[in-house]
Computed example of a mutant assay.
Amino acid sequence: MAGQIEARLKEKGIELPAVSKPQGSYVPYIISGNLVFLSGQLPMADGEIKVKGKLGQDVSLEEGQKAARLCGLNLIAQVREACGGDLDRVKRVVKLGGFVNATPDYTDQPKVVNGCSDLMAEVFGDRGQHARAAVGVGSLPLNVAVEIEGIFEIE
């Protein structure tokens, strides 16, 4: 039945942001075969960064998780664009790569990126279960707290 994922989004009160334009010399996604490779998404909404700074310094775990969720919403918006507006074409969230702007001693990167991973399961159910990396980095573009890239399998 077409529109199941859109219906789930509506039922859960989840609104996807407008797709953002690349911040550099790249494209937001590439389709190769039945895989969509999504460029890293930032915690943006309404054209502006919502969470800036470092985890372990000026961003709390909860704020980091919200940033990761927002990155996930942007990933879903981009994959919807790649699928011509039909999220039911998503067969599986294959892999997420999470980058957390953190102090050198910060070790809760996996908990931060769970903000995105939990969203994928909430939206796609079993199809949202994925492999993942969650790493800490010394800085990220525009001083964002989190950046997440993804690979999705589509029909």
Rank of each mutant, 00 (worst) to 15 (best):
I154E: 03
K54Q: 12
A131L: 12
Q109T: 11
Q57A: 14
E62H: 13
C116I: 04
V90E: 11
E153L: 07
I76D: 02
G40P: 04
A121S: 15
G24P: 03
R8F: 15
L140S: 06
Y26W: 14
Y29D: 11
Q129V: 04
L119E: 04
I76R: 01
Q57S: 13
N34F: 08
L38T: 03
G138Y: 02
S20T: 08
G47M: 07
E48K: 06
P28N: 14
L87R: 02
P43Q: 00
K111F: 00
A18H: 14
C71Q: 05
F152C: 08
C83P: 04
S139N: 13
K50G: 03
F99Q: 07
L61W: 09
F99R: 12
Q65V: 06
S117L: 13
V112M: 03
L42G: 00
Q23K: 06
E62D: 15
K95T: 11
N34D: 14
G56K: 10
F152N: 05
G72A: 06
L142N: 09
V135R: 09
Y29P: 08
K21S: 07
L119S: 00
F37S: 02
L16C: 10
E153D: 07
G136H: 03
A77N: 11
Q41W: 07
S20Q: 11
G84V: 11
P28K: 13
V144M: 05
P22V: 11
A121M: 15
Q4I: 10
L70N: 01
M44T: 00
E81W: 02
T107D: 06
D126F: 09
Q23D: 04
F124E: 12
E122Y: 02
S139R: 11
V90K: 08
I5C: 06
L55Y: 07
F99E: 02
Q109F: 05
G115D: 09
S139F: 13
L9D: 07
Q129I: 10
V27M: 15
G128I: 06
A131R: 10
F124V: 14
A133R: 03
D118S: 08
G40R: 04
G24N: 05
I49F: 01
I5H: 06
G85L: 11
P17D: 04
N143W: 06
E149Q: 08
E153Y: 04
R8L: 15
K52S: 09
S39Q: 13
P110I: 07
V113T: 12
L38A: 02
A67D: 08
V123R: 11
I151W: 00
A133D: 14
E6R: 14
Q129L: 15
V135W: 07
V146C: 14
V36T: 02
S139V: 08
A2V: 15
D88K: 12
K21G: 05
E48T: 01
A102D: 10
G53E: 13
A45G: 05
I31N: 03
K52Y: 04
L73C: 08
E63W: 15
Q23I: 07
G136V: 01
I5N: 04
E62M: 13
